[in-house]
Structure formats: structure tokens, C-alpha cells
Design a protein around this nucleic acid. Structure first.
Lengths: 118, 118
DNA sequence: CTGATACTAAAGCACTTGCTTTACCAATTG
DNA sequence: CAATTGGTAAAGCAAGTGCTTTAGTATCAG
């Protein structure tokens, strides 16, 4: 019943780590090889590689190895799904808050009782 | 150097679990007591409580206990920070893709060479 | 009062994460 | 060729997660 969206799990989990967000922010300025992504991070290269593979499995990053250099680039499509989920929630919540406001107003000037009083 | 935004860590981590997203979706339709949030989930009540406290520590949910019932409600502000981060990345990436497009066009019709060839 | 309801606290445990180190291969450089 | 560079594979380990069960406490209903 749960988890119809394992993709969202992976994307949000990938975004929940500062090292991975730093990688994405760097990649926002253009593609980069693995070593360059790893350099600013306070960890070993294999550790950075593991973060990178989390980003890749979430679909946020695509990589291609040419010669001995693996070049990494962002894939914006994965992020848009996460954005859509957040957006849907926010719209829903704002609408509800509006209806709550309406309801409170009907309490102020009681003409007819409406439904959805919670 | 990393982790200037532990708040983002917590929000994205909270969103990375389907049980917690289900709770948020339910709360989008209005406040609810703990038991109602837990009922559809395939786990014990204490387990659901632990998920709830993750949401609360991320600032996504506020709760108030009246009598023996703890009522939970969403707090949209926490989510907007996450949305802003995603938005910033997407705008950055789209701008970069546009510039890449421009660059490719200048290659097609070479009049003047611009900077930022990456 | 008695019993049921709604939560909460705590301990325990299998499993997963997030690194590390070591060792290694393949591509390039001199 | 030998040495260096860029990346990978694998093992190991401390710490954290995600549940469970058990055992409560406080509140409400009758």
C-alpha cells in the first residue's frame, strides 16, 4: 500500500546529505570529473564515489567514462518530480488554510451552516 | 565547511520515507490525532510515533496535546525552504543549459567568439 | 470506582550507513 | 618501458535506523 514512489524515496534521500548537495551545486556550474567533485569534501575518494553513486541511482546525475576520466553531469528531470510533490503539498495546504479562513469567517457572520467543519 | 544547512538535511531526510510522506499527505486534508495518522501504516503505534517525531524535528509538523489526544498539523514554512533550494538548483541548471545552447549556436554561425566556453 | 483509550518511555535487536584502509586496474605521461 | 593519475572493488567497522515488545502514565466514559 505504501511506497508507490520508491523514486521519490531515493531522490529525497539523496538530497538529505550536505556532501551530495555540494556535488549538485558544483555540477550546476557545469560537468566535472569525479576527482574534482571529491576534492572539496572532507573525506576519502572512495567515500565521495559512494555519494556519487547515490546521486546516480536517484537519477539526479548521469556519468560517462571516457578514457580513465568519468565525467559527471546533472539530470534535471529527476529533481522536477520531487519539486512537483512538494508543490502539490503546498498548494493543498494553502487551499486548506484558505478554507479554514472562510470557515472562521462564516462563524463570524452565521447565515447558513456549511459542511466540512472538521 | 559543509553543512551550513542542517535544517535542509532534516527536511529532506524526513521526506525520504513513504510512511512520513503519507502522514504529510493525510495532514494536508486537515489536522489529525496520532492514532489516525498511524492507523493506515503497516507498523506499530510506537513506530509511527517515531516517524512523527522526525517530522516534528524537521519543523514540518507541529503538535499540541490536549487532554490525552495529541493533535498534529502541518507547518508549511519548513517545506518552503526545501522548495527554494530545489528551485534555485533548477533555475541554475536551466540557465546553464540555455547558455550551452547559445554556445552551440555560436559554433554554428561563427561571428565572434564569446567567453565562458567551459 | 473499573475499564478502555491515547499515547509515551525504554530496552533490545537486525539491518543499514558512512566512512575507512588496502589493494588493484586501466589510461596517460615522460 | 616505468611512474603517475583517475577511478574502482572489497573488506571491515563504529554508529545509526527502524522497527519490535513490554511496560507504563494520564485521561475519559460509564
Amino acid at each position: 500500500m505504501l511506497n508507490q514512489q520508491p523514486h521519490l524515496d531515493r531522490v529525497f534521500h539523496a538530497l538529505a546529505d550536505p556532501a551530495r548537495r555540494a556535488m549538485l551545486e558544483r555540477l550546476g556550474r557545469g560537468p566535472a570529473p569525479v576527482t574534482e567533485l571529491a576534492r572539496p569534501l572532507p573525506m576519502s575518494l572512495p567515500a565521495a564515489m559512494q555519494h556519487l553513486s547515490v546521486l546516480e541511482e536517484a537519477g539526479l546525475v548521469r556519468t560517462e567514462k571516457i578514457g580513465r576520466v568519468r565525467t559527471c553531469a546533472i539530470d534535471p528531470r529527476a529533481l522536477s518530480r520531487a519539486e512537483q510533490w512538494i508543490n502539490a503539498r503546498r498548494i493543498e495546504w494553502e487551499r486548506r488554510l484558505d478554507r479554514l479562513g472562510d470557515y472562521l469567517e462564516t462563524l463570524q457572520s452565521p447565515k447558513e451552516t456549511d459542511d466540512d467543519p472538521e
